[in-house]
Write a protein that binds this DNA or RNA. Structure first.
Lengths: 203, 203
DNA sequence: TAGATTGTTAATCGATTAACAATC
DNA sequence: TAGATTGTTAATCGATTAACAATC
């Protein structure tokens, strides 16, 4: 079991796109051509990518949408829930709480903040807790991800506290380059990157 | 003039990273090795990338940080200001208003919403305006970018209105796949992509 | 000078596209 | 059957890495 196929990085990125594109598909079958048109890529590339999956298409028919959806969801572990806390009680935290991350199998279980004046405020349904409860929250909810939404100057120190308490992945909204042990997963969410792309395309 | 160098896509993406990395550099010179260590890539790759620029490094010294910074900022047009409106008055809008996009040459000039009950509310310093004022705002501020922060069901229709009024680029936070003329710049900001990456790495 | 670092060319690696046989 | 569509192999293209001469 666990026939660890090697999935090329570029393919992996596109599989996420296919997964999302399928969300809005109503028909039972879809061809590589249709997927390709939607995403503005080549149909050959779609077929190549999908050939890494167990899922097989039928000539003259296309791919079974439900089957494809299921395999992609399994691949990304979307059907099992991963618990996440938000650290930093501000508008960004509020925006995150409003998003529906259940469709990618992520559940927000608490909002913490290092600023004591925010403790007790509400972010959506969550009453903001102080950092001291981290250990307790970790134990209770088996938290794996922390979305880091605090100010730049406290980012590194707070990240270190999170890691010390067993957080496995940090979703970093601070814009600060975090220096952490290599076994920790850090994913930077950098909005200015998109703006630079837009500015360049506008020229 | 305008010696349009061909910039490989992968290089372009990394130039954004170099630009950002240089923000926190205090020394007058930096070597490709130092940049590479910071970003966890190969120094050869850094030198190759930088060789596309006019900027030249000095053997035994490295690259002139100020010179490099200037050329990268010019390349991305960061020193000229591009005006942006936000469409949709919610927590995400609030989060965006709080960000400092001036460092990438983007200025928020107004917040509009299609929901009349939000008109008049404040998002940061901005009093929310109705969509009717779009034409006027466009004329007054020479708006080029719209950050689309509204609900999924109104996304396509609202995007079309924006385009009709001369918006050149849409920064799409709605999660909806927009179908727009190919001359319009659409950049999707999809937070769930990062979560899928994290979920996959956690396995 | 010796040594560190750049810049560039060649070699390798990986990703995309073209071509086409297999199949329903 | 004829034709549309998949799946795969080979060819091409692009990106990274290795190697090393040039230079300060």
């Amino acid at each position: 079991m666990g026939e660890m196929i090697h999935l090329p990085r570029a393919t992996f990125e596109r599989l996420k796109m296919y997964r999302k594109a399928l969300e809005s598909v109503k028909k039972p079958f879809i061809s590589s051509d249709e997927i390709a048109k939607f995403l503005e890529i080549n149909p050959e590339l779609v077929r190549k990518d999908l050939s890494y999956l167990k899922c097989q298409g039928k000539p003259r028919v296309g791919y079974d949408v439900e089957e494809l959806r299921k395999e992609l969801n399994d691949l990304f572990g979307v059907n099992s829930t991963t618990n996440m806390i938000i650290v930093g009680a501000n508008d960004l935290a509020r925006a995150l709480v409003n998003q529906d991350f259940s469709k990618v199998g992520v559940k927000i279980v608490a909002v913490l903040d290092i600023e004591s004046e925010n403790v007790g405020k509400f972010i959506g349904e969550f009453s903001v807790r102080e950092m001291d409860v981290l250990e307790r929250v970790m134990r209770r909810f088996n938290v794996e991800i922390a979305a880091l939404c605090i100010s730049r100057d406290k980012a590194q120190a707070t990240a270190e506290i999170l890691i010390k308490n067993g957080i496995k992945a940090i979703w970093n909204f601070t814009g600060v380059h975090l220096e952490l042990p290599s076994n920790v997963i850090v994913v930077d969410e950098d909005l200015t990157k998109s703006l630079l792309t837009i500015k360049h395309l506008l020229k």
